[in-house]
Design a protein around this nucleic acid. Structure first.
Lengths: 183, 183
DNA sequence: ACAGGAATGGACCAATTGGTCCAGTGTCCC
DNA sequence: GGGACACTGGACCAATTGGTCCATTCCTGT
């Protein structure tokens, strides 16, 4: 693990991502993020000219990248699409446990509430599509036809999102482990 | 349709439910609810001594009751569990269209963001369990064993929640209509 | 008719919201 | 050493936040 001190910008993004994921965009104030990241106000508006909104988007992108890495790490060693799904579910369940059973989808947290904002919605759609494309890629790697792969990818995405919701409501990470995967 | 004028309390609950559903608990201010419901501040704190938090819980309960009615209306005339699920999905898709493609799960909206509040989380769990119990009931009505019914009910609930998320992100109600129901 | 509680309207409040501005401080390259 | 510029610290701001309080009005049962 590289422990070299993170830049202020990096710290802002990470702490913002964590907080938004827990309590949503509108649920977290700029002041709270600043304090948790140990950063002064000036830095925020230096790195993110549009303030909170910019930061939330950066946080969502950062979270999505992390998620893509977890997806890859789950599917690459797998011997079938279903095995990859299962492994990913177990990883997510573990992260959910570590988080204290409160975190949901990081993108939903950072971008879903707040204003009915087109930019936010489009970014969330774009990032979600990135995950689905990754699922799709692995499904095809295991021999699925393009249509089949797309179907399977969207299906798994929906299960994952729904599972996250129910897991948080019940505070039970086993929901993720027992997700009703097809096949 | 009974069009007799609603009481102030009723108006507060309904407009709050609608707003929370769109932008989440923290995303909507008390002032905005008051204005939309055409109610003065004094009334809010008369009917809901704990203010916004009480109102959100009432709104969630009201929304959940509405949802239970839609569930019943979908499953009662159905000839199989799967047909009930399908009908419900179509009804939800239509409501989603009417809402302008922004609304999510009403309970998630009112209770999910905001403080990491035990009362909120427990109520959301309770209400979700009510929906699942209803699904379970209908699954058994069509001959499923108790375990099978529970499995099917939770499975469908997860698909529904996940579907809501993806439908909103894509602004596409067809996601709900094409939900990958088993069987 | 009238007592009394329910409901309303709205003035008022401290705290917090997201945001601006700028004088300083570092740090890098010439 | 000096110019340039990225970055920081924090004072300051108007607007909004959720909430309190109370005098008035409405509505009910007797």
């Amino acid at each position: 693990m590289t422990d070299r001190p993170l830049s202020t910008k990096e710290r802002l993004i990470r702490t913002a991502a964590e907080l938004f994921r827990r309590r949503g965009y509108s649920g977290v104030g700029v002041a709270e993020i600043l304090e948790a990241a140990n950063a002064p106000k000036g830095s925020l508006y230096h790195h993110f000219p549009n303030g909170k909104a910019d930061l939330a988007q950066a946080a969502a992108v950062w979270s999505s990248d992390g998620m893509l890495r977890i997806i890859a790490a789950s599917f690459e060693p797998a011997l079938s699409f279903e095995e990859g799904c299962r492994t990913l579910c177990y990883k997510l369940a573990k992260l959910f446990d570590i988080s204290g059973l409160w975190e949901t989808c990081p993108i939903a947290g950072a971008l879903t509430d707040g204003p009915e904002n087109t930019a936010f919605r489009e970014l969330s759609r774009h990032l979600f599509d990135g995950w689905i494309a990754e699922f799709e890629h692995h499904a095809m790697r295991f021999g699925a036809s393009p249509e089949e792969a797309r179907r399977k990818a969207e299906h798994f995405f929906i299960l994952m999102q729904g599972g996250w919701d129910l897991a948080r409501s019940r505070r039970d990470s086993d929901i993720m482990r027992r997700l009703p995967l097809p096949g």
